[in-house]
């Protein structure tokens, strides 16, 4: 079982590396420069998959949170926490790369557009989740409260996605359910490869962080047991 887990993790990392290499090649050497925005449009090939990765992390956090409330164990708790970390990491990529594109395309870095605002709110919810887990202890109550926050965070995801359609705003709506607005097959290839690369990378990160969190919980309990037996203290051996 452990061997299979290690093999899956190695394969995910290998796939991510190969796909990132292919993505970089296609984005910078094959995909054409966009007519109106110029080269800065290429940020799109990393910005959109990063946003999608944030959704993946948030979904993992949601699944882990619901799982923990239904059946509290280290696996669900670890998945929830790993998902929140991934959501914050990729959310930061989105919130930095987006304004850099906007500086050229719109002439300013930030505006309180519905999609930008809801994306920022979502990242802040997951930051709150991690702050809670980092500073409020690791008891049953804290875990359950964080799980509730993880579910609340997921409720914001559809709002981010449909914000442009419902409330308008300036954010581009190139990726749509109607096939998208990419007018060149190489643009589509670059974006598709990037999506696959980010998916493999996120899966590997979720995998390793969840396992690490599970191990950490087991270790915490083992240390506590040994403290209770009087053969261990906070500094180490007694």
């Amino acid at each position: 079982m452990k061997r299979t887990a290690d093999l899956v993790f190695s394969l995910l990392l290998l796939a991510a590396t190969a796909l990132y290499a292919a993505t970089i090649y296609v984005v910078f050497l094959r995909a054409p420069i966009e007519m109106r925005m110029g080269i800065v449009q290429k940020i799109f090939y990393f910005h959109v998959p990063a946003a999608y990765s944030m959704y993946l992390g948030a979904t993992a956090c949601f699944v882990g949170s619901v799982g923990y409330l239904v059946r509290p164990n280290d696996l669900w708790d670890g998945l929830g926490r790993a998902g929140a970390e991934v959501a914050v990491t990729f959310g930061a990529m989105v919130l930095i790369s987006g304004p850099l594109w906007a500086a050229k395309a719109w002439g300013f870095y930030w505006t309180w557009d519905p999609r930008l605002t809801t994306a920022l709110l979502s990242v802040l919810i997951y930051v709150a989740y991690l702050v809670l887990r980092g500073f409020a202890g690791d008891g049953e109550g804290e875990r359950k409260f964080a799980a509730a926050l993880g579910i609340l965070g997921a409720a914001n995801l559809p709002v981010i996605h449909f914000a442009v359609q419902k409330w308008g705003g300036q954010h581009p709506a190139v990726i749509t359910g109607k096939g998208g607005g990419l007018q060149s097959p190489e643009m589509t290839l670059a974006l598709s490869l990037s999506f696959f690369a980010f998916t493999s990378f996120v899966a590997a990160l979720l995998w390793v962080r969840t396992r690490q969190k599970m191990l950490q919980s087991r270790l915490d309990r083992a240390e506590q047991d040994m403290i209770d037996l009087g053969v261990f203290d906070e500094e180490g051996a007694t």
């Binding site: 054409p32 966009e34 109106r36 449009q41 581009p172 709506a173 190139v174 007018q183 643009m187």
Partner: peptide, 28 residues
Amino acid sequence: TPITTFQAQQGAPIEEQHSGVKLLVTAY
């Protein structure tokens, strides 16, 4: 109006402002 399409440039390469490259590299 929000942008709904990205189109490939036609003909000769478009001269790019330096800031576009800088922004792209920074984001990357």
